[in-house]
Design a protein around this nucleic acid. Sequence first.
DNA 1: GGTGTTTTGAGGTACGCAACTCATTTTGAG
DNA 2: CTCAAAATGAGTTGCGTACCTCAAAACACC
Lengths: 347, 347
Amino acid sequence: MAEETVSLALTLKDIAREAGVSLATVDRVLHNRPGVRPDTVRRVQETIARNAFQPHVAAAELARGRARRFAFVMPSGPNPFMQQIEAYLGEMSAWLAARRLSVEMVTTDVFDPSVLAASLETLSGDYDGVAVVALDHPGVRAAINDLVEAGTKVVTLVSDVPSSRRHHYVGIDNIAAGRTAGALVGRLIGQKSGKVAIVAGSQGLRDHAERIFGFNQVMASEFPDLNVLPVLEGRDEDDRSEQLLSRLLGRHADIVGLYNVGAGTQGVASALSGAGREKQVVFVGHDVTALTRRLLLQGVMDAAISQNPGHEARAAVRVLLALARGEPILSEQEKIRIDIVMRDNLP
Amino acid sequence: MAEETVSLALTLKDIAREAGVSLATVDRVLHNRPGVRPDTVRRVQETIARNAFQPHVAAAELARGRARRFAFVMPSGPNPFMQQIEAYLGEMSAWLAARRLSVEMVTTDVFDPSVLAASLETLSGDYDGVAVVALDHPGVRAAINDLVEAGTKVVTLVSDVPSSRRHHYVGIDNIAAGRTAGALVGRLIGQKSGKVAIVAGSQGLRDHAERIFGFNQVMASEFPDLNVLPVLEGRDEDDRSEQLLSRLLGRHADIVGLYNVGAGTQGVASALSGAGREKQVVFVGHDVTALTRRLLLQGVMDAAISQNPGHEARAAVRVLLALARGEPILSEQEKIRIDIVMRDNLP
DNA sequence: GGTGTTTTGAGGTACGCAACTCATTTTGAG
DNA sequence: CTCAAAATGAGTTGCGTACCTCAAAACACC
């Protein structure tokens, strides 16, 4: 039986004593306040580093006193995935309250750059942190940069704006997600050859485009016997997706695979069932919702690629909090994984 | 643009005033201290509930003063999965230090019930919480119950002892994991018929037995064309696993699937490669390690069933902390998922 | 050497709660 | 009604940090 300890317990007073300065000076160094000679700064910082001193978060939080306000800017309209994120934030209410954190939902039309940018501008100054489901557009980028400039911590959620100065992105790598979908469709189809259909919301959406890109990458390089048909744009609407797919199924009797990139899942499933081909076609889609769960259990869907909405919600809050406190981020913890969900590992 | 708030900010003093009692009485109620009339207790509790009051964790933590000590009881010996858990605990050191938490590793022979039970007994009283990779055995169960009796919070990790009074289990449902493996092997094999091999550490290990059970369940009900061969017991050792599997591959030319339930992965892979059949056989195993990662990228392994060791480590700490503080547990957050990892969604 | 400026020390207050003491009031049993 | 026990009020102290003020000391410059 072996033991190993990972612990310590120093206070600011100890650091002050060891560095041979007063508490006030340590405080000045710790918070980058002016009025300390560079030489002294170095001495204090070395003492802190040498002792691996960590301020007691609880004490710091208590002393700071101020409650923190975060805003979540989410799409308006009935998107089940976004609703799940909101639901999980609701479940955290006790956790949030115990830390005197407030999280406010701001719904807006995230697909209209100017509206989204305007929404973001109104938040400036009022919040310590903002999580935003962002569209990658110059106006949005500028709005994000303005927020950052004003000292607000900004996290992009689900959809990134890599060229902005946002502090962190909480979401998955959509190209890898598309690749995963491609590998699944190809592998589950097996030896057969035939055609593969893709239904997306719009190829103008960054995440959809990236997923399609990854999907095609894998299909081209690894499944040459499968012929990928042109993308159907269903605008994430059930009716439209169903019509488009039904027509396609009618024209091609040898469709063996189907990748649904975005929402509109009900329409896609209806088209498949309507043609009586739900058992012959390998169907891979995204996200675990009440509907996809049912489709997986019924065997209509074969796999769902999922990014855990609960994890995303919590990760966004934790990252904002860590940023606001100046704490390090546990990057491993906050990284969102690409989950493959099949019938037997449904969460 | 719509808004909705989830917040509040009361203190104990407010509760005392509203309930018409003194701070001392609220404190007594809050901590189940004696000396309060049942009637008053109820009144105070109602006030707390009505206002959804949450004590400020930072203030509580600071006032309590005492640092919390947790122990992780882990298997001795070189198990990569366990080493990963330890590594992630190490990465949390700054996080832990900032909260004045200490986590101590206690390695012991978890496969010998009496040794494990003895190890657990020695911890009594010294720790606020214990996470243990447990063997399901009456002696171990009793040791766990003793710890709980003494006020220590106990969490079982990876392997559960459901009949004990442990407060929480952090790990996956191994039957479901086996089912998932079965579905993957069956689906990835496709139309073909043939034989399927299983290599396990030992059928005496609860988690291995459960996985095999789930695997067989799915094979029997859904893949009648696949013939599951008797389980090989490789004791999680590379050499032994390789020998047994090599012999089996020699005897059966029509093996199309392989499920490696535990460790010994290197041996299993060597046997496959040695027979030159790594491309013909669908190979599903467990856990993402440096080795399985390489095998997945090479196409030798087709999928790995994984329980995120980092998540398990963090979840165990968070659950112990929440239990110690008397906070609610975010069950959704702490639930460990069964991850399906293929080449394109390698974390 | 004197001036003004920068740096440092010393100390206080506040944050919200835990944990404790001690005095006072209320209650219930006889 | 009496008296002990139970219940409650009032108050104190301390946790470790943030943030502030004011005075003293050190320093730079001419």
